[in-house]
């Protein structure tokens, strides 16, 4: 029995990998009911009239792409299907490529025009100071967009001189950007804020839901899958929930098995 306590961890890695591959190949449906925080973001977008301005802050890089890119795509589907004006920006140097790809690919499916229906302002450093600058004067914070166009000439930005003029801001975060948006943006410029974050950050964000500083939250791949299901655009996140669920069951079994083996061997040793 004691040999199970010294099992080579590579065997566990192999079991997990096989479980992921098999559950991706075998197609079976699992229910994905949307939780209350995910509904918060969805209902907010549903409540906005056509032409409302929504800003997406793509604050992640390729290392968090697997969790946050599906959220970005599902959220963009929702915004474009409701004819909202979408403005993108990022605090991360690694994000422009991902944000640009997500915005252009989804916008083209709804025949949206760059500059009129959506725009990507690109990357700017500064975090807190950038947010304060955007709150005071959006055109001074971003004189040019990602493609070098003068932002004062972009029709999509008409009427958005400051963060105050936004109808909703959605932050996709892999770091501390949600807190930064709350402290330096929402508190002063009073816009509605929702967020999507990596699963690791999820538990830390729940207090902001309770205090209503966030109106909704998408946590990790599960949050992305729930949003994909809500907007009826099932893609990577929904298909990723099958292996997620299977592997979680395997991990629970491993934990039970490990404890049983541990207590059995301990009892045998004391006997």
């Amino acid at each position: 029995m004691e040999k199970f306590l010294r099992i080579d961890r590579r065997i566990i890695f192999a079991i997990i990998t096989v479980a992921v591959i098999v559950s991706l190949i075998l197609r079976f449906e699992l229910p994905i009911p949307a939780s209350e925080p995910v509904h918060g973001v969805y209902e907010k977008i549903e409540s906005l009239p056509k032409g409302s301005h929504v800003m997406i802050s793509f604050d992640y890089d390729p290392s968090s792409k697997e969790e946050l890119q599906p959220m970005a795509v599902a959220f963009l589907h929702h915004c474009f299907s409701r004819d909202l004006k979408v403005i993108g920006m990022t605090h991360y140097t690694g994000a422009p490529g991902l944000a640009d790809q997500a915005m252009n690919s989804v916008a083209s499916q709804y025949q949206k025009k760059y500059g009129e229906d959506y725009a990507f302002l690109g990357y700017k450093p500064g975090n807190a100071s950038l947010i304060i600058n955007m709150g005071e004067n959006m055109y001074s914070a971003f004189p040019k967009d990602f493609y070098g166009n003068d932002t004062t000439t972009l029709p999509v930005l008409q009427g958005v001189d400051s963060l105050r003029n936004l109808d909703f801001l959605f932050d996709l975060a892999a770091g501390t950007s949600i807190e930064t948006w709350i402290v330096y943006g929402k508190e002063k410029y009073k816009f509605e804020l929702g967020a999507g974050c990596t699963a690791v950050m999820g538990p830390d964000m729940y207090p902001f839901l309770q205090s209503k500083q966030l109106i909704g939250l998408l946590g990790g791949l599960k949050g992305a899958a729930e949003y994909e299901a809500l907007v009826k655009k099932k893609a990577n996140a929904v298909s990723g929930m099958r292996p997620q669920s299977v592997v979680h069951v395997i991990i629970i079994l491993f934990v039970i098995f490990g404890n049983v083996v541990y207590f059995t061997t301990r009892r045998a040793r004391h006997a």
């Binding site: 792409k65 697997e66 969790e67 699963a199």
Partner: peptide, 11 residues
């Protein structure tokens, strides 16, 4: 869940 999501994405 987060670490698994990264593995699932790569696979």
């Amino acid at each position: 869940m987060g670490r698994l999501s990264l593995l699932i994405g790569r696979i």
